[in-house]
Amino acid sequence: MIIAVASGKGGTGKTTVAAGLARVWPRPVVAVDFDVEAPNLDLFLNATMTREIQATLPVPRIDPALCTGCGACRDACAFNALAMVGPVPMLFPELCHACGGCLLRCPTGALVEDQRLLGEVLEGRTPRGGRVFAGRLRIGEAHAPPLMRKVRVALRASLAQEPADVLIDAPPGASCPALEAVRDADLVVLVTEPTPFGLHDLRLAWGAMKGLGRRMAVVINRAGFDDQGVRTFCAEAGLPVLAALPFDRDVAEAYARGRTLDEVGPEHAGRLRALAQAITALATPSGETAHA
């Protein structure tokens, strides 16, 4: 079972919910931090990241001895990563999306695969032995999804050895990285807050993600304020509200000290356990008739 915790807006408590859920999850679970621009999940899970693998993306390299300067690769590149300003094309690997289009088009085999560094795939364990995967995007690298795909490869290899549920902490927003993070999820849990920002961004994320055909549900974090707007939207969109997690200074302080929600007090831990139950019930295949 793959559960993705996502949110349209940053700072709604996505990582708080993901980390809390990982700690109370009723079955073996692997926590995955797909927010590769700002990976934080390991901090909250107190995980020790023991493996660090450099992740690269295949980009073309030009063999000038074989290149005839025909420009077919340049014409094939939708991303302007190849420029014909001399006898052979000049490559700008930072613009390359690694689609492979140029390699397919080169008539003389002058393009060979090279690698560009995307960042690191990190793997570790929590003090209780739970597996944690994360990606850390190299500063200046523009594209998160390729690194996320590398994290997923490492995750799959680990799951093949030792099956478990997967809890994904997705990047915020409604653009490519957020969609990449939730694309394989059995259930997307959208964390929102009862502010005009929270509602606006929830609507955007829901709008972007519904095209993927994933089942979705909502958690209202920082509840206790007027949340009628969020609830009305969820009812109209057919999104079940699985939990309302109250807001108080204790929660904010615990977060500031790097503690998870279940550590704040038994009532918070209880709410998380109930949320975990509701999620597993909604995401199990037997209940999958509604959206399949």
Binding site: F79, N80, A81, A83, M84, V85, F92, L95
Partner: peptide
């Protein structure tokens, strides 16, 4: 262009 506008302009100059 989403990206590489400067490179395309450089090509045009060439």
């Amino acid at each position: 262009a989403v990206q590489g506008a400067g490179l395309a302009a450089a090509e045009a100059l060439v």
